[in-house]
């Protein structure tokens, strides 16, 4: 990417983020109640989006060749187990990432 393309890309992320933060105050600032469909999406969209983002993170992993995604699957299982055990975001992320780094550097190089 050129510098200009980088600026446009980051600018798109800034614009999108600011839209999500400022829109409710611009649209509903006078006390109107948000439409039911918006509240419905508020309840159900995040779960689907984070499922999509996990797939996004794994999009370049090849599950049919090489290690069949073993380091990713093991580290995700460990992250999940840590989070269910301790419910501490930092422990889960740190533990899962550290394990993944060991796996890709030493076990599945």
């Amino acid at each position: 990417m050129t510098m200009l393309e980088q600026i446009v890309t980051v600018g798109a992320c800034v614009l999108g983020t600011m839209a999500t933060r400022f829109l409710p105050f611009l649209l509903f600032g006078r006390g109107e109640k948000p439409p039911a469909v918006i509240r419905y999406l508020g309840d159900f969209l995040p779960g689907a989006v984070f499922a999509l983002l996990i797939v996004y993170c794994l999009k370049d992993v090849s599950f049919l060749t090489g290690y069949h995604g073993a380091p990713e699957l093991i580290a995700i299982a460990a992250t999940t187990a840590l989070h269910l055990a301790f419910r501490q975001m930092l422990i889960s992320i740190f533990g899962g990432t550290a394990l993944y780094m060991v796996l890709v550097q030493f076990v599945f190089p």
């Binding site: 990417m1 393309e5 446009v8 890309t9 600018g11 798109a12 992320c13 614009l15 999108g16 983020t17 839209a19 999500t20 933060r21 400022f22 829109l23 409710p24 105050f25 509903f28 600032g29 006390g31 948000p34 918006i38 509240r39 999406l41 508020g42 969209l45 995040p46 989006v49 999509l52 983002l53």
Partner: peptide
């Protein structure tokens, strides 16, 4: 380079902020 995809992705990922905003009105 794909700024439109970047914008759409940002709106989806950060869509939850809309509901924070509604709660903080």
């Amino acid at each position: 380079f794909d700024p439109l995809a970047a914008l759409l992705l940002t709106l989806m990922v950060n869509g939850r902020h809309v509901f924070y905003g509604i709660s903080m009105l």
